[in-house]
């Protein structure tokens, strides 16, 4: 399973970010979310939701020689590992990075994305 992004549809509401932090951490902080919206609100161009693509071969783990499955299930990663992501997909705040764990099988962000910019892809 992964979250498929259709950026043409994103309205830039930030609801997905809020829900992600609320579900995992019990707080609201859009910067502590595994999804983030790349947006220039002083331009008329599109917004782009960015998050982990659930790659089959996780290049981000190359340096660490770890088993992939347990790491996939973790939400908080460290900054260094996130910096190895070839897509810069993980939001970083301080020394922490936020990795999409697919909400342990029941993604919450897609539930609030009313335009359908993010959807579950099985």
């Amino acid at each position: 399973m992964r979250i498929e992004v259709n950026k043409e549809k994103c309205s830039g509401c930030h609801l997905c970010e809020m829900v992600c932090s609320l579900f995992h951490l019990g707080i609201i902080n859009p910067e502590k979310s595994a999804i983030h919206i790349d947006k220039d609100d002083l331009d008329t161009s599109l917004h782009t939701p960015v998050l982990c693509r659930q790659c089959k071969k996780m290049k981000c783990l190359n340096a660490e020689r770890l088993k992939m499955t347990p790491e996939r299930k973790k939400f908080i990663w460290d900054r260094k590992r996130a910096e190895c992501c070839p897509f810069d997909a993980l939001p970083i705040l301080g020394e922490e990075a936020f990795h999409c764990d697919l909400c342990r099988g029941n993604p919450r962000c897609v539930k609030v994305c009313t335009p359908g910019a993010i959807q579950i892809f099985k």
Binding site: V19, L22, G26, I27, I28, N29, E31, K32, K111
Partner: peptide
């Protein structure tokens, strides 16, 4: 980028999603 903590985060999320669905 300060955290905002809620009184009852779990139930807030549940209730919000329910209300949202109705609105939409």
């Amino acid at each position: 980028n300060l955290d905002i903590t809620l009184s009852d985060p779990k139930n807030y999320l549940k209730y919000y999603l329910r209300t949202l669905k109705k609105l939409m």
